[in-house]
């Protein structure tokens, strides 16, 4: 099982956490919703729950619960800029198909 994040993503997460003033890390997950089945979620995490698997890279803790982990195994979290827009991106090898807008996917 592995989850990784790029250096730019790690730096952004660190800055956001610092400015927010609290939180142990970020929680990644999938939600069964959206036009193509699943959608990614990324949230600040204020505590680590018992069932969570914790990955640490570049000084950032990533928390994932077991239900989401099966879909996210091997995912790399990246931060990228597209024109004026910027944000986080999931590079997930399990993804087979995604909806046209790219907000949801199937495995």
């Amino acid at each position: 099982m592995s989850i990784s994040l790029t250096e730019s993503a790690a730096n952004r997460v660190k800055t956001f956490l610092e400015k927010r003033g609290k939180g142990v890390g970020v929680r990644l997950g999938v939600k069964t919703t959206g036009c193509s089945g699943m959608a990614y979620t990324i949230e600040f995490a204020d505590e680590i729950e018992d069932a969570d698997t914790v990955f640490e890279e570049n000084g950032v803790k990533i928390l994932i619960n077991p239900k989401s982990l099966v879909y996210l195994d091997g995912t790399e979290l990246d931060f990228s800029k597209e024109g004026l827009n910027e944000g986080f991106k999931f590079n997930n090898p399990n993804e087979k198909d995604r909806c046209g807008c790219g907000e949801s996917f199937t495995v």
């Binding site: 997460v13 956001f16 970020v26 929680r27 997950g29 939600k31 919703t33 959206g34 036009c35 959608a39 990614y40 979620t41 990324i42 949230e43 600040f44 995490a45 204020d46 990228s80 597209e82 827009n85 910027e86 944000g87 986080f88 991106k89 999931f90 909806c99 807008c101 790219g102 907000e103 949801s104």
Partner: peptide
């Protein structure tokens, strides 16, 4: 789509 970090439990649907 590029995502932003939400507050705990406040993730939005696509």
């Amino acid at each position: 789509a590029l995502l932003q970090i939400s507050e705990p439990g406040m993730s939005t649907a696509p």
